[in-house]
Amino acid sequence: MRPRYVVQRFMWMLVSLIGISLITFVVSHMVPADPIRAIAGLRAKGEQVEELRRRYGLDKPLHEQYIRWVVNLTRGDLGISIRTGQPVREDLQRYAPATAELALAAMFLTVVVGLPLGVIAALHKDRFLDHLSRIIALSGVSMPIFWVALLLQIIFFSRLNLLPADGRLDIMLSPPPQVTGFYTIDSLLAGDWATFKNAVVHLILPATTLAFGSLAVLTRMVRSSMLDVLGEDYIRTARAKGLSERRVVIAHALRNALIPTTTTMALLMGALMGGVFLVELMFSWPGLGFYAMRSISLVDFPAIMGVAVLMTVIYAFFNFVADLLYGFLDPRISIEGGNS
């Protein structure tokens, strides 16, 4: 990997960030609602409202507000949330681990189910199992995410009463001492078995819901790259030297098919962020999406901007990782920026 390329990509990420923040800024200030009125209450006097407006810098012209916001951003300061009264950065730090835990759990499920499904589909190309896996995968992307959430809640919570339908833990339990912010890992570190089980049980439904959409993409990707690899000469060689079919598939084909798949996974991780919003809302999962939805409904500018910036960074990061992985895993590809 050429350092120049990495630097170029990084600079481009910064430019995108500025652009996106500008778009978000303009869009969120288009809203006719007045957040100050909302927090000051209807009976607040004129001067109190003016005072609050000054405190949040909302009395300045728009372009000045934006410039000030960018300057503060370079110092890592995202402003104060109008709704919570806390620095946005602290809010984000508090809510982010829940989202990360949920997204990783969903990714785990996607891989555990999607990888075998894709391999099976490729090995049975154009036969029954291939069609079946295609139906499963396409069904996943054809269901609205909130409806999947609702169905799972109807079945596993309301009918069978097997799994909880909201939150990260039962109300009676207190969260484990914070180390990583992941309740599952933290409770294990604290040796608290009951809390760990409870946290896992709470994760199942939201993670499954979130995994539904990405499952299709991964399965199709694994299938097509497996088909690609299976047609290669070295597979024929492996078969010719008498290796068992199992070894050929797992050690020779799958390993190489995983190269494009890993890249897809990194991209999917970024794409999951879109679904996270609805899933967190449906399951009252106290993560970034939950935080964002509440901020949006109260037109809490600093919070909205903060979430937008964080989302862009996460998204860009995973796209970047996908690019790097591609060059790293497949030595035949070298990214050198303008050398072709």
Partner: peptide, 12 residues
């Protein structure tokens, strides 16, 4: 394209 489109659509 550098931003999750769904979230931007939501904001707009």
């Amino acid at each position: 394209l550098a931003f999750p489109g769904y979230i931007l659509a939501l904001a707009i």
